[in-house]
Every structure is written in C-alpha cells, then in structure tokens.
Design a protein around this nucleic acid. Structure first.
Length: 1026
RNA sequence: GGGGCGAUGGCGAAAUGGCAGCCGCGGCGGACUUAAAAUCCGCUGGAGUAAUCCUCCGUGUGGGUUCGACUCCCUCUCGCCCCACCA
C-alpha cells in the first residue's frame, strides 16, 4: 500500500531575478485567459467554445476551402510562379505517419506563404500507382490493384485534408490510368525513335540517322558499327531494324540482369542494394534475358556536368556523381597468342602496363568459351557455371578468397611482347569496363592477392613514393660483424634470434649495398626490397629484380642455393614469406616508372598521360572514359505496369502507332507472376496477338515498364494534367517548370532523381521542353524516429504514430507547428508527445491573446515606448519568419513566432490599442501558413473578410525594426569582461571611450594600457593587453 | 576498403568568425484551489560563494590559424548514411 506522502517542507531561498542582460526586462506576463482543460480530456458535448478546441472547427474550414476552390491553381499569368512539389507517393495500405507529414507540412507552408506573397503557386498531388507493392498486396488479398490503389489513395487524400494540406486536387493524377500511361508510352516511343548523336551531343530523331546512313553510311559516325551507304541500301527491313536498335535510346538486347526471385521480375541496377532487392530484401540472381533498356549512358557526361547548376543537397549530388562513376583511362588491345582474336581491356593505370603478368576475363566474357583450350575445358566450364549460379551478394562478398581458373591460352602484352596467361575469375565483373583486365599484381591489391594465391609472377614497375627499403638478413647468411658494421653506419635494425631486420634509410642505400656484398656468406644471398629490388649473392654478383627474365633467373638461382625455398613459385612469393617485408612489397601509388623499357624514369605525375599518348600514337590503345553507370533496364515481367508499346513481327520490332495509344492493360482474372521470366501478359492471347494495318501478324511486347518510367515525367504532367492531345502543352510546361522546390526522401538519390533528370534532357533535346534540369531546388526531410530511443517507426515494431491520432488529441494546427518545430528540417529526430504539447500550448496562448477584447488606451506619450518596442519586435519577426520560411529553417520560424507572441504578451498592458491590434493582426496573418485552421477561425470570429489565406503577407520595414540601443560586449584577451549599453548611433570613439571607462574593464586592466583596441561596429570591443 | 554527414544542458535544439545554449520539453519554487489537474508567475549548463556581485570551467578528443573559434584548418574517437573485387 502506498504511504501517504508527508509534507516535505523545502527550505529554499527564492532566487531573485538575475539582472543578466539589460534587454531582458522584468515584465510580468498577464493574460486574462479563460481556464483550459487538457487536450486529452476534450471528449465532451459539441459546443462552440471560447476556448481553443480545434476539433470544433478544423474540418468545417477544410470543407469550405475545398468548396470555394481556394487552392485551385490559377492559369499561367503575369505573376511570378512558384512550383512546389512533394515526391508523389506510392499509396500503401498503412496510410501516412507523422514521419510522412514532415515532408508535406513544410511544403504546404511554403505554398501558402508564396500565395500570400503574391506568387502564382502550383502545389499538386498525385499517385505513383503502378508497381510491385500494390500488385503483391492485391494478389494476396485476391483483389484488383486498381481498386486497392483507389482505396489507399482515398485514405491518403482524407489524411491530407485532415492536416490541412492545400493541394490543388483538380490536378490530381494517377499514373496507372490509361489517360496517364498513354503518355508514358508516348515518351517511350520518343526515346525509341531517337538516337544520340555524339557529334552534336544531343538526341536526334532516328529518321535523321536513316537518311544519313542512306547517303553516306557511318562515315562520320565513328561510334557505330561501320556501314557503307551501299551496305545500308542492301539491307532488308529486318536487318535495318536490328541495326538501328543498336543506336536507339530505347532498345532491346539480351543481357545478364538482376532477377528478384521473390518478385519474379528483373530489377534495375539502381534497385539493387547490398546485392538484394531494395523493396523485398531478397538476394538477387543473375539471369540472361532479352530486355528493354534506356540508353542513359549517353547522357552520363551531361548528367554529371549539370549537377553543378542545381541547388540540391551536396550529398545527393555526390551520390549521383559516384553512381555515374566517371573514370578516365585507356583501352588497350592484347592480341591472343596463336589466334587472330584480341582482348580489349580498360585501365586507369596505363603506366603499369609493363607489370601486367596475366589477364583475367569475367566468367560471362564472350571470349571465355572460344579461348579455352580443350585440356582446360572441363575445369573452366565448371568454374563458369558455378560463378553464374552464385548470387551477386555471394560473388562480391569482400572477405571471400579469390578464385579463378587458367583457360589455357596466352595473350601478348603489346608493350613488351611478353606472353602472359589468360585466366577467368569472378572478381572481374562483366558490367564494368570491357569485362576483361590486364592484371598488374605489383600495383593492384586484388591482382596481388590473386597472383600470390596462384603463383603468378609479381613484377614491380612503379617506384615507391615513400622510399621505404628493407632487408632481412637471415641468421647465417651474413658474416660476423655485420651488425656492428650497420651500427657504425647508423643503419637501424632489429636483431631477433640471430637474424637482422633492417630498414635502410634512403641516403644509406648505396652504402648498404656495398656492405652487403662485403658480408654476404658465399652460397647465400641478401636482398633489398621496396625502394630497390636487388639480390646480392656476393661481391659484384648483384642481380636486379625487374622484368620477367630476372624473375626466372633469380628464382632458379635461389632454388639452387636454398632447398627451403624450392616450393616457392615466384620471387614475390618467396619474399612474401618474410613477415617483415609485407608492407614494402605492394603499393598502388602514382610513382615514377621502373622496369618499363624506354619509359623507365618517367615521373609519377606525368606517367599516365605520357603512356596514354604513346599508346594512341602507336595504335596500341586509346584514351577512354568509362562510367559505372549502366543503361537503365526498364522491363518488368509483371502485370501492374505500363505496357511497352512495341509489336514483334517476323520483320523485327515495330513501334505501336502514336494514334493507337494507349496500349491498354487487359482486364484479367489472374495476373500472378510466372517464374519463367515471362510476363503474365504473355499468357493472354487476346492481348498478345495483333495484326498490323498492312496485314502482318505480330505479337505484342508483354513486359511492362518499371514504375520509375511513370515517375520520370509526372512533374511535367501536373502543368497540364488533363490534356488528351499531348502529354502537356509546351506553353504550360514552359511557364510552370522547372519545379522550384522539390521535397522528398533521400532514398531516391540514384533512382527517381537520376531517371527524371535523364528524361528531362531527352525531352529537351527533342524540343518538347525548354529546360534541362527538372528540379531547381531539392531538399530531403529528416526522418522522424520513434519516441523511445533512436528506432525508425515501423509497422512491425508497432511504434507508428499517425496524424489521425495526433489530430484527434491536439488538432491539425498543433501537429503542423510541431512538425516544423521539432528539429532542423533535414535532421533525423525522435518524435516527442511532450514537445507536441508545447506547440499546442503556444497555439492556445495565441488563441487567447487574439480573441481577448482590446480595451487599451489611445496612443500617447505614456504608451509610446512600449508601442515602439512592440513594433520593433513585430518587424523583426516579419523579417526573420519570412527569411526562415524561404530558407527551409522551419524550426526557427516557429520559435520566432513564439518569441513574437511572448513579446506581445509581455507588453500588452503598456501599449496602445492601435499597436496591440497591429501586432495581433500581424501575428495572425503570419500564423496562417503554419496553423491555417486556427488562423481562419480567429479571423472569422473577429469579423474579418474571408479568407485569411487570401491576405497579403506583412511587409517588413527596416526602420521600424531598428534598435535604439545596442549592447556591446567587451573582451579583454578573449575573455568577456563587461557589457555596455549605448545608443545605436554611437561613434567608434564614443564606444571605445565608454568601454575603457567601464569599472570591470578598469579592474581587469589593473592599470595596464591596452596594446590594441578593436571595435567591430555594433558587435563588440576587444582589448589586447600584455 | 573508399567517400559523405554528424557530435552543443537532463531532452529536442539555437547561434553572417564576435555575449554559447534563442524557442520549447522536462525539472524546481511560487500564485490560484478544500485538494488536485489545468492555468499564470519566477528560476533552471557545471563548480566556488551568504550572494542577484564576482571568478573559474564548459560546444566529442588533441593541436593550429585569429584580437576573438560551436563556426575555419589538421589529428583522433564515436555514431549514422552511401558506394564497394569499378580495373
């Protein structure tokens, strides 16, 4: 049983007010407020209250705003426009959480703010409705995805209304409707009918290409498969179509792709995270399928360069830069020994060519089969098969040991004509470069490991940049007195069990070589590694380790002299056995070239350039830029997506005529995915079989487009959402686009945000839009975490907080204000119900303040100081709130509003009626974007003309915001010693004079004269004292 | 392995190189109340002190630049994120 708490009398002296800063005045806050109840206890009979009960009026106002079309976008006009957009959501059955609101509330505040500032604002919303989650949910619930989406979207829409988001619903779009995807298909066809002309660096109609081919073949098109005009003319329709597909921006080709066995479809590279499907987390497999791609790689350079022109978070830009992954290097051809084949490799280190001791092909490389010798065939086939079977995650696991098999053939290193073995290994990826590498084990970590494991020679061809040189003198290899001699030369070493571990300073190298010759025991040897590579067998008997010949000779001699090393297959393997040498054997720096014939001695900073130039001149290779970016795989073997408008015939593929769009998704009973890599649409003969106008029978493409196609242009459709003649009128898009402010999560950094930029550039090239970047300003909202600890909100953890429950308890305005106030917009932060209570109390204080009667006196000399103080606070608030809204500093918007509220409360009993109302009205108008319901309700109760949301944003007046007095802190040697109050106009001399007169300053100066008196106007005085 | 972002009271946080901690939460004390809740008022980084004066310490660590550093530069630690056998 709990004991009754006895009275505890706390004897504690009441602390009196700190005088602290003079600006902080001791004003007693008094509000003649009615009593209030907690929001939690609001459940009661409905009545129009004097108190702040948001539940009584919020929904009423939203209905009225909708009925009055208050947020309907005006047609393009003379006003400046503001296009403020949220990532359009993928409606899910879970609805919105307070985390999602972090996205929608601030953009709504922006939209409302810019409307009041006189901008023509476009703030639309729609649904990214196609795609796997809806389809999977529909299969599970045995319903239709369209129905499900409609249901989910309705719920989202209800929630948006609940929290007062001012979307223009007359522009609502749904990407899964034929009215929308008709134009997604249309854009697909524009890509299909275009090719990238590298000479002018833009996309052009494919018809231009056909014309050019007919006239002069590929004479001027050096990146295409060579073709003469005669050859082109001789080609039949099918051959021409096949030829052109190698240049179209939308094309189909067989390729190894990421297959998600859970979703039973191919997914794009961008959708693979840590070797698994980004949606369901299932490890992806590789499958060879004939698939549709968009040739985004042609735009790699422009996608990279234009990042510099847009206002996006740096980390997002960086992710895109890394994803595009531009790297400069050279392509080098290695002829295959005894064959007319050759292997082309890409390298960023052409300066290491002389150290290439073997080649490696990716298991998928087309030459593997051809170049494998009969003797090696069984082993190679088994290896390749095994590699294909592995998931991407298995194959790329970092700790994994290197594996590989020699295929029996040799290549010729074009720079020194050395014959080097060709291997196949899964550490080489078909997807990057050419799928084949020259291995330079001395200067590439992976090649080094591989060479050590398989006993392949490792030949240093680049000098160390740190000059590290080491020698290990095994006990018995050097005559007595060697240690003493080293000491005499002050060459540092350690002695362990009779062996010496020597680190040779650069300036002692030559001396050391002399000594080693002197002391080495006949029949033994001493070696130097690192800065030099020398084997010292005796006086004048020094062999340099450099090049394949010396490798063989040194190894043979060591084997002969020392039985213990006979099992070592290479010189480096022998050296590697000495633990002490490990850090001196390998490096990947850009140093001077060594052991590289005529290039030996080329300094590290010019080596790559000189070798590349030489390769080009001698025709052995050429400069090349490679990108990590791959072409965008768009095919999905699923039902719920935009059908690809292509028909396959005996004569090749034929695009659906634009006037026959849309190719509609058939209504079906079952649309479960098949495991065969074929879309469920393929099982519907009525859909598949078509006859072309000329009577040719055809079969429709049955893959659908991934949803990122839909989202790559929806922001353009919002400019003209109901156009049934074209995707959008050029005039509308030219007025509204690009999007001024775009807000959403960072998870789309290399998916949607990259694809949308790409489509925009294509549409620009083809003349449909007048801009090259779709989103001028991008911001990512921070995540809202669960209240306890730092966990994410998730349905499975049961810690999701919905706007519905918050609105029920506190009203939408408090939710909105708290979403803004909670933290810096981009920062992840935990939700706090107590913090929410704080913003609720602030709104209630505003309510009371606004609705109390104004019985203050007329302006007079008595009220003048307070009136001026209040106006100052007001104009400062206008300035700060405006700047912070525009600068995405929503948390300080709310804190500035709170400060302004406090200022009115503090001064309310000293000001005139006019000043009081002026301040209250300004506060209310500025509150409108933040707390639209309450602002409207108070506005109405005060009898003002509807609607507060159509009022002008208050104007800032710098002269009224100006302070009369300033507080100048005084520092002595960096420490704060006093503050002085002076009129704002005080001159430098006056300030310095006042500072020196200060009692505290005098005391701390203790009679000394300052060496320096620094006055930063209006900011501070800094004294420097010896 | 490479790269990025971040670290400030008990908590969320603020601070064009110029008074660290605005605003809010929580806490403490008071007013009102029979009492509580709510509301209102005051205090609230740490230490010393009778003290509201005053002094010292304090923005993850250690250094540097500067009259002056949360802010700029370097080092390290921790946390989060991205990329990753990328040739």
């Amino acid at each position: 049983m709990p004991t009754k708490k006895t009275q505890t009398t706390r004897v504690k002296t009441t602390k009196a007010t700190k005088s602290k800063i003079a600006a902080k005045k001791k004003v007693v806050r008094q509000t003649q407020s009615p009593s209030h109840r907690t929001p939690q206890s609001l459940a009661g009979p409905f009545s129009k209250s004097e108190k702040y009960v948001p539940q009584e009026f919020e929904s009423k106002w939203f209905e009225k705003w909708q009925a009055d079309e208050l947020y309907k976008t005006a047609p393009a006009d003379e006003r400046p426009k503001a296009y403020i957009l949220d990532f359009f959501p993928y409606p899910s059955g879970d609805g919105l959480s307070v985390g999602h609101c972090r996205n929608y509330v601030p953009t709504d505040v922006l939209a409302r703010y810019y409307r009041m500032k006189g901008y023509n604002v476009l703030h639309p919303m729609g649904w990214d409705a196609f795609g796997l989650p809806a389809e999977n949910a529909a299969i599970k619930m045995k319903t239709n995805p369209a129905k499900l989406i409609a249901q989910y979207a309705a719920n989202y829409k209800r929630q948006f209304a609940l929290i007062g988001i001012s979307f223009d619903w007359s522009r609502e779009i749904n990407s899964s409707t034929p009215e929308y995807y008709r134009w997604t298909q249309w854009i697909f066809l524009q890509l299909y009918k275009a090719w990238y002309d590298r000479r002018v660096n833009r996309a052009r109609p494919i018809a231009d290409l056909e014309k050019e081919l007919a006239e002069k073949g590929t004479r001027d098109i050096d990146w295409a498969e060579p073709l003469t005009a005669e050859q082109w003319s001789a080609m039949d329709l099918k051959a021409r179509r096949e030829y052109l597909s190698n240049l179209r921006l939308a094309y189909r080709k067989p390729a190894w792709l990421n297959w998600c066995p859970q979703d039973k479809t191919v997914i794009a590279n961008e959708e693979v995270k840590d070797g698994a499907c980004w949606r369901c987390g299932t490890p992806v497999e590789k499958r060879m399928l004939n698939q549709w791609f968009f040739r985004i790689t042609e735009y790699a350079d422009r996608l990279l360069a234009d990042l510099d022109t847009i206002d996006w978070p740096e980390h997002i830009k960086l992710m895109q830069r890394n994803w595009i992954g531009r790297s400069e290097g050279a392509e080098v051809k290695f002829p295959v020994d005894g064959s007319d084949q050759s292997i082309t490799v890409f390298t960023t280190r052409p300066d290491t060519l002389w150290g290439a001791t073997f080649m490696v092909l990716a298991p998928e490389h087309p030459l593997v089969e051809e170049l494998t010798t009969p003797a090696r065939q069984a082993e190679v086939e088994a290896y390749v098969k095994e590699a294909m079977r592995k998931t991407e995650a298995d194959r790329t696991a970092i700790e994994k040991d290197k594996t590989g098999v020699f295929i029996g053939s040799y290549a010729i290193n074009p720079v020194n004509n050395e014959k080097i073995p060709i291997w196949v290994a899964d550490y080489v990826m078909m997807g990057y470069g050419t799928g084949a590498i020259m291995a330079v084990p001395a200067h590439d970590e992976r090649d080094f490991q591989f060479a050590l494991k398989f006993g392949l020679p490792i030949l240093p061809v680049i000098e160390r940049t740190d000059g590290l040189a080491k020698s290990f003198a095994l006990g018995g290899t050097m005559r007595d007195g060697f240690a003493d001699a080293l000491r005499a030369e002050s060459i540092p070493f350690e002695e362990k069990q009779g062996s010496l571990y020597i680190t040779i300073p650069a300036n002692k190298l030559d001396r050391y070589i002399e000594m080693a010759q002197e002391f080495v025991v006949p029949g033994k040897w001493n070696e130097i590694v690192g800065a030099r590579w020398l084997f010292i067998f005796g006086k004048g008997d020094i062999w340099t380790f450099g090049g394949i010949e010396s490798e063989k000779k040194i190894l043979a001699r060591c084997h002969e002299l020392e039985p213990n090393v006979r099992h070592k297959r290479t010189v480096m393997e022998m050296l590697y056995a000495v633990e002490f040498y490990r850090d001196a054997l390998f490096h990947a720096e850009y140093g001077a070239m060594i052991n590289s014939n005529e290039f030996t001695g080329t300094p590290g900073d010019v080596a790559v350039k000189r070798v590349t130039e030489w390769l080009e001149k001698t025709g052995k290779g050429k400069r090349r830029v490679h990108y990590k970016l791959r072409d965008w795989g768009i095919s999905r073997q699923r039902y719920w997506g935009t059908p690809i408008p292509i028909i396959h015939t005996d004569q090749g593929e034929v695009p659906v005529d634009e006037k026959d769009l849309p190719v509609k998704l058939p209504d079906v009973e079952s649309y479960e995915p098949t495991a065969t890599g074929e879309s469920p649409l393929a099982t519907i003969p009525k859909f598949v079989n078509v006859t072309l106008p000329d009577g040719t029978p055809g079969k429709r493409e049955t893959d659908t487009m991934g949803t990122f196609a839909c989202s790559s242009w929806y922001f353009m459709r919002f400019a003209d959402p109901h156009n049934d003649q074209e995707p959008f009128a050029k005039k509308q898009v030219a007025y509204w686009l690009p999007v001024d402010t775009y807000v959403g999560g960072a998870e789309h950094a290399v998916m949607h945000l990259l694809y949308a930029r790409f489509w925009t550039k294509v549409l620009y090239d083809l003349g449909y839009v007048p801009f090259v970047e779709p989103f001028k300003q991008l911001r990512n909202q921070g995540m809202i975490l669960a209240p306890d600890g730092k966990e994410k909100m998730s349905k499975s953890k049961g810690n999701v907080i919905t706007p519905d429950e918050v609105v029920k308890e506190y009203g939408a305005d408090a939710l909105r204000a708290y979403e803004m106030f909670i933290s810096d917009f981009e920062q992840a932060t935990p939700w706090s119900t107590q913090g929410l209570g704080g913003t609720w109390r602030w709104l209630r204080r505003v309510w009371d303040l606004e609705l109390q009667p104004n019985n203050r006196p007329a302006p007079s000399a008595t009220t003048d100081p307070a009136d001026r103080a209040l106006r100052r606070a007001m104009h400062k608030a206008i300035k700060k709130v405006s700047a912070d809204i525009e600068g995405f500093r929503f948390n300080t918007v709310v804190s500035s509003m709170m400060e302004f509220t406090n200022a009115i409360v503090d001064l309310q009993n000293q000001v005139s009626a006019a000043a009081f109302d002026e301040a209250r009205d300004t506060l209310l108008v500025m509150l409108a974007p933040i707390a639209p319901f309450m602002a409207e309700e108070i506005w109405a109760r005060k009898g003002r003309p509807y609607s507060i949301h159509q009022q002008k944003w208050p104007r800032y007046d710098a002269s009224l915001a100006a302070d009369e007095m300033m507080t100048i802190p005084i520092q002595i040697n960096g420490k704060l010693r006093d503050r002085i109050e002076l009129p704002v106009g005080a001159s430098e001399a006056e300030v310095k004079d006042a500072a020196l007169k200060s009692e505290n300053v005098q005391r701390h100066l203790a009679g000394k004269t300052p060496l320096k008196v620094i006055y930063v106007p209006g900011k501070m005085v800094s004294l420097v004292v010896p």
